[in-house]
C-alpha cells in the first residue's frame, strides 16, 4: 500500500485504506495511552487514581501540584532521587570509558576471537536480569560488595556496557580510516589523532551510548534490589515498593517527571544520531 490513495482506487481499496489507518491509530493509542493517562492523573487534587468528575469538567480546583510537592518534600523520595543521581552518573562514566576503548579496539581489523569477545560484551543485555541479579547477589556477598554503593555502581556499569559497545561500534562502522592516516602523515601522534580526529567523529555515538547506559542505571530495579541495601534505595526501587505497598499518586508525579526526562533524552539521542550520520556523510534517516 502506498501512502496516498490513488484516484483510481476501488471502493474496497478505499475502505481498506481507511480501515488500516484506523487500526494503526488504535495501536498507536495503545502505545501512548498509558503514558498519557498518567500525566493528567498526577495533577489530581484528590488521593485517587482515577479521573474525578471535577477533572473531567476541567475544574481548576480539581487539579493541583500536591503530589509534586510531596515528591519534593518527602525525605524518602528525595533520598531515593539523590541515590539514583549518585549511582547512575558514576556507573555511566565507568561503562562509557571502558566501553569506548573496547569499541575502538574491536573496530580494528585483526582482532582475535572477535566473535567470542563481542558475545561476552553484549551478554549483560541478553542474560535475564534476575539471573544477573542472583549471580551478583551471591558473588558480591562473597567479596563484601553486596549492600555497598560500589557494588551497585559496578553492577550497573556492567549492565550499561552493551549499549555503549553497540552505539560506539555503530559509529565506527562508517568511519573513514584514511582520516587517521592523513592526520598521522601530517605529523600528529596517535594520542593527538585520537582526540582531534577520531573522537569528534565518534563523539555522538559515545554520548548516546552514555545516555543509554545512564537510563539503564537510572531505570534499573531488579539488580539494585538484590545487590543494594536500604542505603542504596534508588528511585525505581522506591517506585517498586510503592507500587506494591503504599501506592499513592506521588508515584504518578514521579512517573510524569521521568517521562519528561525520557523525552529530553530521546531528543538528545535523536539529534546526535542525525549529526553523526551527517558527519559521516550518510543520509539522515
Amino acid at each position: 500500500m502506498d501512502h496516498r490513495l490513488p484516484p483510481y482506487a476501488t471502493t474496497g481499496q478505499r475502505v481498506w485504506f481507511y480501515a488500516f489507518r484506523v487500526i494503526c491509530g488504535l495501536i498507536f493509542f495503545f502505545l501512548m495511552a498509558p503514558i498519557l493517562v498518567v500525566i493528567p492523573l498526577s495533577f489530581n487534587a484528590q488521593n485517587f487514581f482515577t479521573f474525578t468528575p471535577g477533572m473531567l469538567a476541567f475544574d481548576p480546583d480539581a487539579y493541583s501540584l500536591r503530589h509534586y510537592r510531596d515528591f519534593f518534600t518527602n525525605p524518602d523520595w528525595q533520598q531515593a532521587l539523590s541515590n539514583s543521581l549518585k549511582i547512575a552518573p558514576v556507573a555511566t562514566l565507568l561503562s562509557v570509558s571502558l566501553g569506548t576503548l573496547a569499541a575502538i579496539g574491536l573496530s580494528q581489523s585483526h582482532v582475535p576471537f572477535k566473535g567470542a569477545i563481542m558475545a561476552v560484551m553484549i551478554s549483560p543485555m541478553i542474560v535475564p536480569l534476575i539471573i544477573s541479579a542472583a549471580g551478583m547477589y551471591f558473588f558480591y556477598s562473597r567479596v563484601g560488595l553486596q549492600g555497598t554503593y560500589w557494588g551497585v555502581v559496578l553492577a550497573h556499569a556492567a549492565l550499561g556496557i552493551p549499549f555503549v559497545i553497540i552505539t560506539v561500534t555503530a559509529t565506527m562502522v562508517g568511519f573513514d580510516k584514511s582520516l587517521t592516516r592523513a592526520a598521522a602523515s601530517l605529523g600528529a601522534n596517535p594520542v593527538t589523532t585520537f582526540f582531534r580526529v577520531q573522537m569528534p567523529l565518534i563523539l555522538p555515538g559515545v554520548i548516546s551510548g552514555g545516555l543509554f547506559a545512564f537510563i539503564t542505571s537510572f531505570d534499573e530495579v531488579v539488580v539494585v534490589i538484590f545487590v543494594g541495601s536500604a542505603g542504596q534505595q534508588t528511585l525505581p526501587w522506591q517506585m517498586f515498593t510503592g507500587l506494591r505497598e503504599q501506592i499513592s499518586p506521588t508515584i504518578l508525579a514521579v512517573a510524569t517527571i521521568l517521562v519528561v526526562v525520557s523525552i529530553a533524552l530521546l531528543t538528545v539521542v535523536e539529534v546526535l544520531r542525525r549529526r553523526s550520520e551527517r558527519l559521516r556523510g550518510m543520509s539522515p534517516g
Binding site: 547477589y137 551471591f138 556477598s141 553486596q146 549492600g147 541495601s229 536500604a230 542505603g231 534505595q233
Partner: peptide
C-alpha cells in the same frame, strides 16, 4: 544507620555470614 531489610533478614544474614562480612 537504618536498613529496612527485616523482611529478608534471614537470607541477608546467611549471605553475610557466608562472606564473613557482617555489617
Amino acid at each position: 544507620v537504618w536498613d529496612e531489610s527485616s523482611p529478608e533478614a534471614v537470607a541477608r544474614m546467611r549471605a553475610m555470614f557466608e562472606a564473613d562480612n557482617v555489617t
